[in-house]
């Protein structure tokens, strides 16, 4: 029995990774169909008012837009496989370069947000689950609903207003002060890592300070979901036989909750964090706009406004790839933690 379980973990991981291929293919096909089969000509939409008809025609040829759709489709898949997401029409930048330059800001924003979310949600969810149907439960649940329901950009604006009023010196916009951006050499594309590598403590503090508000804002959004989940799980596991058994052995209720019920309630949190990755991306786009954060979300919105099909297609493709990769990573992690998850 034990050997069968041990043998099936690599098999599970292998199958899960192989399933990426069709998943990725479907997503890429959807992205391609949406953006390329849609009516309207990408080149005219982006730069039609700036260039002569001949120049437009040559741009179209350079992008391969004059070739049959099937050829374009196969080329698109081939290029994505080599991590080539094309060049933007409006300002002729490789999309991969945008991802390298701005992706770091989105990454640190998201990771910081998860940190805040867990710090807020785990204790609150446990409290609400343990004291089900009391006033405390009601308050925590309303907090969960409201923090999930509140438009993240509105929460961000209110936090900015609050901070400006009470701590006027605290930074509320951007990822670093102009000074830090000037002095810290760009090595990895992630300014926090660059500042640490440069061994410049003032810059590190500055960058971290800039992270607090955006990460907290995005973290609040995520905490709403996690609170609800932890609460329900604690309630469920408090009904389980092994918890009854622990109580029957005379273990104090506090310890039963902390050591027996809460731990098992945490396993699904990993899955949900993975599932919430999509929500996090959506939230990150809005947070970036609110705090003028130099990340991928802001770039995407700028290119959508500029009606640049290639840039939008490239960035959306990248997001699709990221979603698939994270979902696989979470499933594998879940299988490692929970031995019941196997094929």
């Amino acid at each position: 029995m034990a050997s069968a379980a041990a043998g099936s973990l690599p098999r599970y991981v292998l199958i899960r990774v192989l399933l990426v291929v069709p998943m990725m293919w479907v997503l890429l096909t959807i992205v391609f169909l949406l953006l390329r089969v849609a009516p309207g000509d990408p080149v005219t939409a982006a730069v039609g008012d700036k260039l002569s008809p001949e120049a437009l025609e040559s741009r179209r040829a350079a992008l391969g837009l004059d070739r049959p759709l099937v050829v374009q489709y196969l080329e698109y898949l081939g290029r994505v496989a080599q991590l080539d997401f094309g060049r933007t029409i409006s300002d002729n930048r490789p999309v991969l370069e945008i991802i390298k330059n701005q992706g770091g800001a989105t990454l640190t924003l998201t990771l910081g947000a998860f940190l805040f979310a867990l710090l807020i949600a785990l204790p609150l969810g446990r409290l609400a689950g343990r004291h089900r149907d009391t006033a405390l439960d009601a308050v925590i649940r309303i907090f969960g609903v409201v923090s999930y329901a509140a438009p993240i950009f509105w929460v961000g604006i209110l936090l900015v207003l609050f901070v400006i009023t009470f701590v006027p010196s605290w930074p509320t916009f951007g990822i670093a002060s102009a000074e830090t951006e000037f002095y810290v050499p760009d090595r990895t594309g992630i300014i926090l890592v660059d500042a640490i590598l440069a061994n410049d403590s003032a810059s590190v503090v500055d960058v971290l300070q800039h992270h607090v508000l955006p990460c907290f804002t995005l973290g609040l959004l995520l905490s709403g979901v996690i609170i609800r989940l932890v609460r329900v799980n604690v309630i469920q596991s408090l009904k389980d036989d092994y918890v009854e058994a622990a109580r029957a052995r005379g273990i104090p209720e506090r310890r039963v909750v902390r050591k027996h019920a809460f731990r098992n309630a945490l396993v699904p949190v990993i899955t949900v964090i993975g599932l919430q990755f999509a929500l996090t991306l959506s939230g990150a786009i809005l947070t970036e706009r609110t705090f003028n954060w130099p990340g991928l979300g802001n770039e995407l919105v700028a290119y959508v406004t500029a009606r640049d099909y290639v840039a939008v297609q490239g960035l959306v493709t990248f997001f699709a790839v990221a979603v698939v990769v994270v979902s696989v990573a979470v499933d594998v992690l879940n299988a490692l933690v929970d031995p019941r998850v196997r094929y």
């Binding site: 949406l34 999509a278 929500l279 959506s282 786009i285 809005l286 959508v304 997001f319 979603v323």
Partner: peptide
């Protein structure tokens, strides 16, 4: 599995 806001952005773009 796609981020809903991203999908909405793409559709409103189109």
């Amino acid at each position: 599995s796609f981020p809903s806001l991203l999908l909405a952005i793409v559709f409103s773009f189109l």
